[in-house]
Design a protein around this nucleic acid. Structure first.
Length: 272
DNA sequence: CTTTACGCCTGACGGC
DNA sequence: TGCCGTCAGGCGTAAA
């Protein structure tokens, strides 16, 4: 399940292979995604030189001279660099071939993902316009969070996962960040002090950086561009560890409960 | 304005 | 063993 570290891992894996290359062929075998893949995608891309691959939140942006290809991996999407004509596996929906030498293949069993063409500035597109700061943006800081949280009575975990507050913190890393910051996930956002939001900012960055360093977290179907799993799963301190001892205090045990319709994990002893 | 519920979709998993 | 129901989960949208 790609969260920010998985998307960034994908970007880093893919970019060196395709940046500066020209799209020679586009093959769309399945258009039914969260939104339909544009019917004229091949016409738009073929013959165009890819300038660079960047990321905003969990979106990948392929920059061309005349616009951007916006890609979202949804829940189960993956991009792999392969040779053109490599055997198809189930749910291999779209191929972008570059210079007749390299194929970028999008696989997405659940089709929660997205591939759209943006002719204008990406930041004004409706899907991107309302996004909060990146976790490493200096605008993401303690006073920013404390200020926003004043109007938020809901659980801090939901607040943290709200893409208009900060982008890229999904379910796994929200639990991990709150554990490291010692904040109980159910605590109302407005009841978290500015000082503790400072700790949370640091924790979010630390966790995401570590996860990127390990190539992301493989829980079910995420694999990197080279097909290998991400190894941050071994570094998870609370996620999917219900009933096991807390790695911080040695006791715990780690509790699991549903917050905002999502499984949440925490140490009842370390997190208040 | 915030908060909550829901639906999209398929593979994995558990129970029988 | 095999069938089948349930669940996960990003995120946009609608409803409360």
């Amino acid at each position: 399940m790609p969260e920010l570290p998985e998307v960034e891992t994908t970007r880093r894996g893919v970019a060196p292979h395709v940046e500066g290359r020209t799209v020679s062929r586009v093959l769309v075998r399945e258009r039914r995604f969260r939104q339909p893949v544009p019917a004229d995608l091949a016409m738009l891309l073929e013959g165009q030189r890819l300038r660079r691959v960047s990321r905003r939140a969990k979106y990948l942006l392929f920059e061309f001279p005349h616009g951007h290809l916006l890609v979202h991996l949804g829940m189960s999407g993956s991009l792999r660099v392969i040779s053109p004509g490599a055997p198809l596996k189930p749910h291999d929906h779209i191929d972008l071939e570059f210079d007749d030498q390299i194929c970028l293949r999008l696989r997405d069993p659940r089709r929660f993902g997205l591939m759209l063409w943006l002719s204008g500035a990406p930041e004004v597109h409706p899907l991107l316009a309302k996004l909060g700061p990146e976790p490493w943006d200096e605008a993401f800081n303690a006073s920013y969070l404390a200020g926003l949280a004043k109007a938020r009575s809901g659980a801090v975990k939901n607040f943290l996962m709200d893409g208009s507050v900060v982008v890229g913190v999904g379910n796994i890393y929200a639990s991990e960040s709150l554990h490291r910051a010692g904040i109980h996930p159910s605590r109302p956002a407005r009841r978290v002090s500015a000082a503790r939001y400072g700790l949370l900012v640091d924790s979010v960055r630390t966790v995401l950086e570590a996860a990127i360093g390990f190539g992301g977290t493989t829980l079910r179907d995420f694999t990197r561009d080279d097909g290998k799993p991400g190894y941050f799963r071994n570094e998870l301190r609370v996620y999917d560890r219900a009933g096991q001892p807390c790695l911080q205090c040695g006791e715990g045990p780690i509790a699991q409960r549903v917050i905002g319709q999502r499984a949440s994990y925490f140490c009842p002893r370390c997190q208040r």
